[in-house]
Amino acid sequence: MDTTSDAVDADPSDGRCRTASGTCTLRAAVMAANARPAVRPRCLPATTGSRSRPARD
């Protein structure tokens, strides 16, 4: 997003957030994202390593 104005996406099916004036508004970004087919989220494997920080003296 590069503007705070409220304008629709000129072509939501092209996958780009671009209004008729060439800017990217929040509404245009949502329209472009909603026009894309649903993507199944990727699941990352569980980690078994330690995530704690070393103790300080």
Rank of each mutant, 00 (worst) to 15 (best):
S5Q: 11
D6C: 01
D6G: 01
D6F: 01
A7M: 08
V8W: 00
V8C: 04
V8Y: 06
D9M: 06
D9S: 11
D9K: 03
D9L: 02
A10D: 15
A10T: 08
A10H: 07
A10K: 10
A10Q: 13
A10V: 10
D11W: 03
D11L: 00
D11I: 00
D11M: 03
P12C: 13
P12G: 02
P12I: 11
P12A: 02
S13K: 05
S13A: 15
S13Y: 04
S13F: 05
S13H: 07
D14R: 02
D14C: 02
G15Y: 08
G15S: 04
G15A: 01
G15I: 05
G15H: 03
G15E: 04
R16T: 09
R16D: 13
R16M: 14
C17N: 08
C17S: 08
C17Y: 06
C17G: 07
C17A: 09
R18D: 01
T19K: 01
T19Y: 01
T19I: 01
A20C: 01
A20D: 02
S21M: 07
S21T: 11
G22L: 00
T23D: 07
T23S: 12
C24M: 02
C24P: 02
C24F: 00
T25Y: 00
T25V: 04
T25D: 02
T25Q: 01
L26M: 08
L26Q: 02
L26I: 02
R27Q: 10
R27N: 08
R27L: 10
R27V: 02
A28L: 00
A28R: 01
A28M: 04
A29N: 06
M31L: 13
M31N: 08
A32S: 14
A33K: 12
A33Y: 11
N34Y: 12
N34L: 15
N34C: 14
N34G: 13
A35D: 13
R36Q: 15
R36N: 12
R36E: 15
P37C: 10
P37A: 11
P37N: 11
A38K: 09
A38W: 11
V39N: 11
V39I: 13
R40H: 08
P41R: 14
P41N: 10
R42T: 09
R42K: 08
C43F: 08
C43T: 09
C43P: 04
L44Q: 10
P45Y: 07
P45G: 10
A46W: 09
T47S: 14
T47V: 10
T47G: 11
T48D: 10
T48E: 10
G49A: 12
S50N: 15
S50Y: 13
R51S: 12
R51Q: 08
S52D: 07
S52P: 01
S52E: 07
S52L: 11
R53E: 15
R53N: 14
R53W: 14
